[in-house]
């Protein structure tokens, strides 16, 4: 490690939530930030903005195929070869169209891979190195949608649920070590992913506020983080609704 800057990696760095996390990180301190995206131009645009906000920070850009295990593994090896990583935020995802997933297995497969398997592979690749160094935090963005399957989005929800179970196991494995694992579960947030919900006038949290909660949760190393916090209560109720009621709900 060439100097003492905190080293942060964001996977899916073009996500609106992740971008606001990055802005807050560079505002708090001079950092060494690696942005991983799938599209070079888009990721560079995010990087350029962060460089203006924090000229002293080091901002790097990497691109990868998020669905290819070998590419993920090589990418992470390359990142870690340059020095230990303190925080990894894994943010990519896509609110898949449930109806299409039901009719088209290829779309269904892609939705499950992108939202469930890909984040797990990234986390798994980083966590081995962190365990060796006995320090670091892995934060993965799941969703309240992973808490209970429902007809309007259960493919996406299943993938997010997979992340939840994975994180649970990882926390078990790393209990007592210096490595922390944080599962972030945002409620509906105003980002490009939810543009169609906004169109229907749904109430959405501001990405900036969600990002602020995420940074705080990561600092504290909270195992599970609902953002905004009220979703912890709402989802507890949703999880405990008896089927006889739940199955009648149009949600």
């Amino acid at each position: 490690m060439p100097d003492n800057k905190e080293r942060i990696v964001i996977v899916g760095a073009t996500s609106a939530i992740a971008e606001h996390c990055a802005r807050l990180w560079v505002k708090e301190a001079v950092v060494d930030l690696t942005l991983v995206g799938r599209d070079l131009g888009r990721t560079e645009r995010v990087a350029a903005d962060l460089r203006v906000r924090s000229p002293q920070s080091v901002i790097r850009v990497l691109v990868a195929d998020f669905l290819a295990p070998l590419a993920i593994s090589q990418l992470v090896d390359g990142i870690v070869a340059e020095g230990p990583v303190h925080i990894v935020l894994i943010a990519h995802g896509s609110l898949s169209d449930q109806v299409i997933c039901q009719q088209d297995l290829i779309a269904c497969h892609e939705a499950l891979t992108l939202n469930g398997i890909s984040p797990v592979l990234f986390a798994e690749a980083f966590v081995g190195y962190m365990q060796k160094a006995n320090c670091g935090t892995v934060a993965v963005i799941g969703s309240v949608a992973g808490d209970r399957g429902r007809k309007s989005n259960y493919i996406y929800g299943a993938a997010k649920g997979l992340i939840a179970r994975y994180v649970q196991g990882l926390q078990h494995r790393l209990a007592g070590t210096g490595v922390k694992v944080v599962l972030i579960k945002p409620g509906p947030t105003d980002t490009p992913m939810t543009a169609h919900l906004k169109q229907q006038g749904a109430p959405l949290a501001r990405a900036e506020d969600v990002a602020r909660c995420i940074l705080k949760g990561i600092r504290q190393g909270k195992p599970v983080l609902y953002v905004p916090g009220k979703w912890a209560v709402i989802m507890m109720i949703v999880r405990h609704l008896p089927n006889i009621i739940f199955n009648k709900l149009e949600i």
Binding site: A48, D49, V52, R53, P55, P192
Partner: peptide, 11 residues
């Protein structure tokens, strides 16, 4: 309001 990035600033 989502077009909220800086491109460059020359101090």
């Amino acid at each position: 309001t989502g077009l909220d990035r800086f491109l460059s600033f020359d101090k």
